[in-house]
Amino acid sequence: MFQEMRYRGPSLDELHENYAKQHRIDEAAPIRSAHEVVIDAPVERVWSVLADPADWPSFDPAIHHVHVEGNGSAAVDTRFTWVNGRAKIASRFAVVEPLREITWTGTAMGSRAAHRHLLTPREDGTTLLRTEESMAGTLLGLVYDKAKLHAELTRWLDSIKAAAEQV
């Protein structure tokens, strides 16, 4: 348990380049979770919801103050900042493969995270959206745990599902 509390994980650059860009999270991180949901919408619609960070506050009330550098669109290595609840997060896109995967890394309150989203179109016209995230930081476990992360991922995917399923 003490080892988990002390685990800092890789540097942010290493997490970004050697984990997220390689389609993986930090499996050694003490705080990890995954969740998936089937969305009654085509993959194109799910992608348009997920790949537009500036619009996230419109369907997820916990998210606000989103700022994406450049032209505001998701692109590899584009930086963006946002607030999720009370946590201000500085993020950078690592993978942007339209209709397939979007992954970013980020830092907040001394922690480092890798957050992946995988989209799979299904034969019936629905989309399977899977997310997985790892978080690490010295003493992070004192204020945040796997159960809280799982609840956040569930809320996040439920918000995306509701937005994508709106006609």
Rank of each mutant, 00 (worst) to 15 (best):
F93D: 01
A162I: 11
M135H: 15
S73W: 06
T154A: 07
V49Q: 02
M5W: 13
H115F: 10
A147T: 07
G85N: 06
E4P: 02
G141L: 14
G110S: 11
A54S: 15
L139G: 09
L119G: 00
S91N: 13
V76A: 07
L12T: 05
H64P: 10
A51F: 07
I39E: 03
D52S: 13
Y7E: 00
S91H: 01
G72R: 06
E165V: 13
D124T: 10
T126N: 07
L142P: 07
N18S: 11
P61H: 06
F93I: 04
L129Q: 01
Q3F: 13
E133D: 10
Q166T: 14
N18L: 08
M135C: 15
I25C: 02
S159T: 10
R155P: 04
I89T: 04
G141K: 03
P121V: 04
S91M: 03
T105W: 02
T81K: 05
A34L: 13
G70R: 12
A163R: 03
T154Q: 12
G110W: 04
W56I: 02
D124W: 13
G85H: 05
V43M: 03
D124N: 15
S91A: 14
R86L: 07
L153W: 03
E69H: 08
V83R: 15
I39F: 05
D124V: 09
E4D: 15
V68T: 11
H16L: 05
R112W: 00
N71W: 04
E123L: 11
H67T: 14
Q22A: 08
P10H: 10
H16A: 03
V49P: 02
L157N: 15
E69P: 10
D145N: 14
A87C: 04
H150E: 15
G141D: 08
S58C: 07
A136C: 07
A75V: 08
H67K: 09
Q22W: 05
A75T: 14
K161G: 00
L128T: 11
G9A: 09
S11T: 05
S58D: 11
L153Y: 00
I39G: 01
H16S: 06
I63L: 07
R45V: 15
A87L: 14
I63C: 09
S73K: 11
D77K: 13
L140I: 12
R100E: 13
D26M: 02
A136R: 00
E14T: 10
F2M: 12
G125S: 08
L153D: 01
T105A: 09
V68F: 03
S111T: 15
T105Y: 04
S73A: 10
A113Y: 00
D55M: 12
E132Q: 15
A75Q: 14
R122A: 13
A29S: 15
L99S: 08
